[in-house]
Design a protein around this nucleic acid. Structure first.
Lengths: 163, 163
DNA sequence: CCCAATCCGACCGCGCTGGTAGGATTAGCC
DNA sequence: GGCTAATCCTACCAGCGCGGTCGGATTGGG
């Protein structure tokens, strides 16, 4: 498993936010019900997105969340990095955002010379990051819209009806 | 962390096997000492590689393991798949080698329609698999050889001396 | 003032990873 | 034929991170 549900839920949350243009903020409760996800857990996830400056929040009564930028300006590498903390193929690749090498595989020789596997993991990591960077939230919102034929008339919960 | 140490150790093991042309088989003990890895754990890992037909074994006295094919004919996607069982970005992507869709994200609507995230994870998975498939064991062995300047004269263990 | 919402921290069960232990089996060698 | 070195196999275990919950503090609209 490359990603945890943090990435899954977080991306779903952003897609949901992207669907409602922006106007009034959307409450987590609405999203949780719409996607069938645990509210309390979503709270912690959205906190990560907020800290990364991807969403903005309004507190109090009719508060909620909205995207900080347009969906087309949000690339998924930034999203996943914010949610997962790092996208490293291996323990020794915890580059903690510096962008350097930092390959210190404990096992191996004594000095931190490159393992043979370093070549492999480097390629994989670069590939993943590139793929993520090339996909924008706008694409996902678009894809999602085409996946749901009906809807909009049944109004399952208070998502679209309230306010 | 995309991969576990199974992949790390397994690849190291193969690189080590690739270094010793083939002639006589190499014992796990020699590899464990050379790489500083726990022998008992390596046993379980090499079993996965054997089951996948990547290495062959000789039992008894001067037994050990050798590559089943030349290093250039071993691509890393096959290796990692054998070691990790699957390379799925998400739980719902456990395609169990069938190659189909099988995306049944529990949360979501009711029927197994594609999540919006499906698009993303599909791209990532394809990217990783492609990267792995384009790297051969021969490349890693080569890379490893250039990373070690000296050696070959000190003979740390019984790896090259015995027999 | 009440209620709906964001915020925040502590807590917790479970499964998997990484590793160990012990033994059975196979085969070269004296 | 026995000793020994190796593969093979199964069960066991500690630690930890993931997924999730709970309770409460804070903020702000009506």
């Amino acid at each position: 498993m490359i990603f945890t549900t943090k990435a899954e839920y977080g991306v779903r949350l952003l897609v949901e936010l992207g669907r409602q243009s922006q106007r009034h903020p959307v409450s987590l409760k609405a999203i949780a019900e719409a996607e069938g996800l645990p509210l309390a857990y979503l709270e912690r996830i959205v906190a990560l997105l907020k800290r990364a400056g991807l969403v903005e929040s309004t507190r109090g009564a009719h508060g909620g969340y909205r995207l900080a930028r347009g969906p087309a300006a949000i690339a998924m590498d930034e999203v996943v990095l914010a949610l997962e903390g790092t996208v490293a193929p291996m323990e020794c690749f915890v580059d903690d955002r510096a962008g350097g090498g930092r390959v210190l595989c404990s096992h191996h020789d004594d000095e931190g010379r490159g393992c043979a596997t370093k070549l492999l993991w480097t390629r994989v990591q670069a590939g993943v990051l590139k793929t993520l960077g090339q996909t924008t939230l706008a694409e996902l919102v678009d894809f999602d819209a085409r996946q749901r034929p009906r809807e909009r008339a049944d109004a399952t919960a208070t998502a679209t009806t309230a306010a």
